[in-house]
């Protein structure tokens, strides 16, 4: 795990311009949503008042959405990159297990996303006057920690498709797209028609963002985010074994077809 972390850090640091643009992008994104919030100030749905307006609502969404992106795309993206660089076969010859590979390829990007999320919050609080004075950090940490296993599991399903079929991964295409629309990333999912609101509950991101908003903006305690905790826990328990099995099957198919190096 440490070897992957150091490797990813070294590669990330080697792209200095990208490092700089990452920070510029972060400020630009926050500013764009702040201005959007200002432009529609009079039209914001009343349910957002509990969060202090549209900007505090959306900044939590964009700050923490990266965890789902990393979980979902991290492993499959990394597998594909390793295939292109020709490093996948030497790596797999070290007999690294599918679970370790999934965790290892995500460790650095999860930490980077955490730093980005904290920077978003600091920027929001210091520059755009988001009120974080009542935030409940332990509740936020628990919600975030419990959202990682389902995100990782979805990434394993996606990685399994990459190994077995190379392209056309439905987890990435369908789930990734729908979750952005339905999970309350840019607007409250309660504004959607009732059937879509029910569907929204099938996405771990919905419960993660709702719990994080409650904990960080309203200071919700463990008991107040218990619904989200139970949803995330349940999703983790169901999806993680599925992800591990799928990844093993993906490896088995790639080994049988001799297609590890194909992309």
């Amino acid at each position: 795990m440490a070897a992957f972390f150091i490797r990813d850090l070294q590669i990330w640091v080697s792209y200095r311009l990208s490092l700089f643009l990452d920070i510029v992008g972060l400020v630009g994104t926050a500013l764009a949503f702040f201005l959007l919030g200002l432009a529609f100030e009079g039209y914001i749905p009343p349910m957002l008042e509990q969060y202090g307006g549209y900007f505090p609502f959306v900044i939590i969404g964009i700050a923490f959405f990266g965890f789902q992106s990393n979980g979902l795309y991290g492993l499959s993206g990394s597998l594909r990159e390793e295939q292109l660089q020709g490093t996948l076969e030497p790596m797999l010859s070290s007999r690294i297990t599918p679970l370790s590979l999934s965790l290892a390829t995500n460790t650095f990007s999860f930490l980077r996303t955490l730093v980005r999320a904290v920077l978003f919050l600091v920027l929001g609080a210091l520059v755009f006057s988001v009120d974080l004075s009542s935030m409940n950090i332990p509740s936020a940490i628990v919600v975030l920690a419990l959202s990682l296993p389902p995100f990782l599991a979805l990434g394993m399903l996606s990685g399994a498709f990459t190994l077995a079929f190379k392209r056309g991964d439905p987890v990435r295409l369908v789930y990734g797209g729908l979750s952005v629309l339905l999970s309350g990333l840019y607007f409250p999912y309660q504004l959607l028609p009732q059937p879509l609101q029910w569907l929204a509950h099938a996405f771990p991101l919905t419960h993660a963002l709702s719990g994080l908003r409650a904990a960080l903006l309203n200071g919700a305690s463990f008991s107040e985010v218990s619904t989200q905790i139970i949803w995330l826990l349940g999703m983790g328990v169901v999806l993680l074994p599925l992800g591990i099995v799928a990844l093993k099957l993906g490896h088995r198919k790639a080994r049988r077809d001799g297609s590890y190096a194909q992309y």
């Binding site: 070897a3 150091i6 490797r7 070294q10 020709g86 076969e89 030497p90 790596m91 690294i96």
Partner: peptide, 25 residues
């Protein structure tokens, strides 16, 4: 297995960093 292909290492890393990564694996 050593492949005669010119890939198989991380282009942005130096030789030591590549060796340490695969050695640790």
């Amino acid at each position: 297995l050593v492949s005669g292909e010119e890939r198989g290492f991380y282009y942005r890393l130096n030789g030591w960093a590549n060796l340490v990564f695969f050695g640790r694996l």
